[in-house]
């Protein structure tokens, strides 16, 4: 259990760093997200965030700004939280 949490916190730390982006707009949105609720990600949310963060910056920004529809319903809940941030 302890080990499981250590892995999870390492993963959270990694996601936190990967929220540093090439586009300022995303830095701001992701910064707000982490300030709001980021540390309490459950496993499936962390998985969604990892997938979103793996996207190219421009595509992710299009999703966050609502310019493009979300390609995968599974990502929708987390995307909603980013949009609300």
């Amino acid at each position: 259990m302890r080990q499981c949490e250590a892995v999870r916190s390492r993963e959270t730390q990694r996601l936190r760093w990967r929220s540093r982006r090439g586009l300022l707009e995303l830095d701001i949105v992701l910064g707000r997200f982490w300030a709001g609720c980021g540390e309490e990600l459950d496993e499936s949310e962390a998985g969604s965030l990892a997938r979103l963060l793996a996207m190219p910056d421009n595509d992710l920004l299009d999703l966050v700004m609502g310019r493009k529809p979300c390609p995968d319903p599974a990502l929708l809940p987390l995307l909603q939280r980013l949009k609300a941030a």
Partner: peptide
């Protein structure tokens, strides 16, 4: 690189 290459600021 501090970040993945294609996430460098040139992307802006």
């Amino acid at each position: 690189s501090k970040v993945f290459p294609t996430r460098s600021h040139t992307v802006a």
